[in-house]
Design a protein around this nucleic acid. Structure first.
Lengths: 292, 292
DNA sequence: GCAATAGTGTCTTTTAGACATTATGTG
DNA sequence: CACATAATGTCTAAAAGACACTATTGC
């Protein structure tokens, strides 16, 4: 092997003299998109509450984007893996631990952060409403759940290019904001290229950095994965009714499902219990997830 | 907004005095898993050639892992996005351009590179055999296509933990090597945790760094995506027969499909031409991809 | 009884899977 | 004709979709 070495140097020697500062080194952060399902406040006591998908945001207490809402996250430390950093930030900033988490995508545009070159590795985490009490009472940080909604506003075709406008809405008690995302799908020959950018409102309002885009990406991933994995059960408490489960599917997919068909399709993933809920109407049987 | 600023400082002032060296800064690279489909050499002139999935590797000419085979890739420059870096490396190291590419996953274990902390953002690229002539004749770099095969060797259950052994084989003219991957799936309550590591052979042989693991991940992604996207057509030339297309499905999925059913399923994605192949048997109609 | 929700039955259409048969070229 | 591959037909089983109906609670 040494014969092949152009520098006549052993690997040990090489490593000893390696200069790590030869290449530019960006900062690396992890950002967490944390989803949960929360009940919408409901007036009629006999009606079931509607449910909404919520994302956790933290109010920025420093520059840049002071006062805007941002994803929880932070810099990766020298001796920790990306996943360890994500777990640590989750715990530090929200108190949540041991919840479902997966790596989403890494954003690395040179100008996505005005401070310096920051590459962000985004993770998606899911939790059920039971865990949420933990997230309160953290040190000085203002964290809030925002009901998330994404709507396709318009779609236009200009020859080989398709442009979609999506409106993301974030709603919380006392505050709400919207972001307009523009998705461009252009085709040259067989190659398809997709590009998404934040169009409105002014970047200085509402959601910090490119975080709206990251949240939008996470929602797409969740929508996709809900029908070929069991990911949805990470949003559910241990025991739940079929109607509750169906509502979660409906909020995430953004469409209504037929009850009988839904039940047939989901049945094999569930264990029936002999517990029931009580309410101003017929009691509903509780189920739990059947690990496969 | 200024009232909320604890430092009574404007954002412009803040940015001017921002010290980017406050946090440790790892090196960031992009690595490319480039797949194509190549014919296996065939003796009987009347028989159709078998086809294999190939991955492009480059022989390392320097430390570390001198003489081992590695994914093409390199450091991300200061003023370029991750995707730009991937496109540039692809072009520089292989001559390939304008081919399908998607971000795969980001690997960031602190000790995955013996030189220094290196975070690698991996991309998967696909190309058809037509483009391959371009990849030859590059400067001094020895690049080779390796036929890739992944087999499940064993699977064992120890209570809540499942361990799988996968054997990855890389075969090229004049060289071949194998890597044993161990996948551990453990469950604590509802949480499932998956961990994969390289077990054999000695890390210093064959495939450099953790690249075997990255390739394995890419193959899994490709297998998955083949049946819910049109990704496979990026591996095909413009015109192809149904048998050729079926062979590509079969090599990627690692199983045989029934012809009649395959045709029925794929039909709507294709445009029939009135061109035919010639051979020592019945001619076969050529099709092309119907963009949706 | 009525409002509200829970849960079942059944018909149709679509898709997937297995397998048999026919067609068309060359040597 | 034998060999090799191409292409189609048909039967069955499973899954998806639409819709109508019955059941059980509190007031």
């Amino acid at each position: 092997m040494l014969r092949e070495d152009p520098f006549q140097e052993s690997e040990a020697e090489f490593l000893k003299s390696y200069d790590a500062s030869r290449y530019p080194r960006p900062s690396v952060t992890v950002d967490m998109v944390i989803f949960t399902i929360l009940d919408k406040p409901q007036d009629n006591y006999r009606k079931l509450p509607e449910r909404e998908l919520n994302v956790l945001l933290i109010k920025r207490g420093g520059h840049p984007y002071l006062g805007c809402w941002a994803l929880p996250g932070g810099f990766v430390r020298e001796k920790e893996s990306l996943e360890d950093a994500a777990v640590r930030e989750l715990q530090e900033e929200t108190g949540l631990k041991n919840i479902y988490m997966e790596q989403l995508y890494t954003w690395g545009d040179p100008d996505r952060d005005p401070r310096t070159r920051v590459i962000s590795c985004a993770y998606m985490a899911l939790t059920d409403a039971e865990n949420l009490k933990l997230s309160a009472g953290d040190d000085a940080l203002e964290a809030k759940w925002f009901a998330l909604d994404k709507k396709l506003l318009s779609e236009s075709n200009l020859g080989e290019t398709k442009i979609q406008e999506h409106l993301l809405s974030f709603t919380s008690t006392g505050f709400s904001c919207k972001t307009l995302l523009e998705k461009t799908i252009s085709r040259t020959g067989k190659m398809e290229k997709t590009h998404e950018r934040i169009r409105e409102p002014e970047k200085r309002e509402g959601i910090a950095f490119d975080h709206a885009r990251i949240i939008s990406y996470a929602l797409d991933r969740l929508r996709n994965k809900i029908d070929y994995t069991d990911i949805v059960f990470n949003l559910m408490p241990e025991f739940f009714t079929l109607t509750q489960l169906q509502q979660v599917y409906e909020t995430i997919l953004g469409k209504e499902l037929l009850k009988a068909n839904f039940r047939r399709k989901i049945e094999h993933k569930l264990i029936e219990t002999d517990q029931f809920t009580e309410a101003g109407h017929r009691p509903s049987r509780l189920f739990k997830y059947r690990e496969s």
